Simulated assay, not measured.
Amino acid sequence: MGGVQMISVKMLKPYYIKADDQYVRIILAYQYFAVVINKKVYQFIPIEAKEIRINRKTRKVENVGARFAFQKGKDIVYMTMSELISLPDFLFQLHSIAKPYYDSMQMDSKQIKDVNAVIIDELEHQNIKRLIDKALDERDEEVFRKLVQLL
């Protein structure tokens, strides 16, 4: 994906959800998931990864290497889970879908704060990675070294 692209989530609805002791699996299907890339809507197509797997205890996405396919006409775009979780709207929607499955009991305010902390941590981590990329692009060794220490 060359250049700066505006990517956002148009819709993210689970086709169905499977939860076991360890994981919440959000199963995706055509017409339940769409992204907007440079103002064009791409529909999810289940030719590669079809699920998002979240660890119920850590509340983190586990299958970060998964590749998802999106189609608009004859054009197919692939996005990895790590690219998707770098989109704040994707993360927020994902956690709100999975939230009821994180704990069998109703979550108290401490648990809600914990979930929010996980989301903020993930967003900060993604931001540091972007800043590292920028420092590399600009060949700024000092900034690069400072940022790497934050990871």
Rank of each mutant, 00 (worst) to 15 (best):
V148N: 14
V41A: 08
E83G: 10
K10S: 11
Q111A: 13
D103F: 00
V61R: 09
K110M: 04
P100R: 06
F44W: 05
I76G: 04
L136D: 13
E142S: 06
K72D: 12
M81S: 14
L87W: 00
Q43L: 05
V64G: 10
Q5F: 00
H125F: 06
Q22G: 03
K74F: 03
F33I: 09
Q22V: 06
I47L: 10
I45M: 09
Y101D: 06
I26S: 08
L94P: 09
P14F: 00
I76H: 04
D20W: 01
K74M: 05
Y15M: 07
L91W: 01
Q126M: 09
F144W: 08
Y15K: 12
K134T: 10
V118L: 04
L94Q: 10
G2W: 02
Y78I: 12
E141H: 06
L136V: 11
N127S: 11
E62D: 11
I119K: 02
V61Q: 12
K110I: 07
G65D: 15
D114P: 00
I54K: 07
G73V: 03
A135E: 05
K134P: 00
K99I: 07
Y78V: 11
V4L: 09
F90C: 06
I27H: 13
Q106W: 01
H125I: 01
D133Y: 06
P46C: 06
Q106L: 11
Q93P: 00
D20K: 04
M107K: 13
Y78K: 13
K60N: 13
Q126C: 12
I17E: 08
N38I: 02
V64Q: 12
Q31G: 05
D108R: 01
F92A: 03
K40F: 01
Q31A: 07
P100A: 10
Y42M: 07
Y42V: 05
E83P: 04
V118R: 12
H95F: 15
I27W: 11
D121R: 10
L84D: 09
H95G: 07
E48R: 15
K110R: 10
V143H: 02
K40G: 02
P88A: 10
L136N: 13
A19C: 13
K50M: 08
S82A: 13
E141I: 14
K72Y: 06
V9C: 14
Y23L: 10
Y23F: 15
D20F: 01
V24L: 03
S82L: 09
V77L: 09
H95C: 11
I97E: 11
M6E: 15
D20I: 05
I120A: 12
V115N: 05
Q31L: 08
L150S: 11
P46Y: 01
Y78P: 02
Q111E: 15
R56S: 05
A19R: 12
S82Y: 07
L87A: 11
T80E: 08
V9F: 00
K57R: 14
A34L: 04
D137A: 04
M6P: 00
I26F: 02
K50L: 04
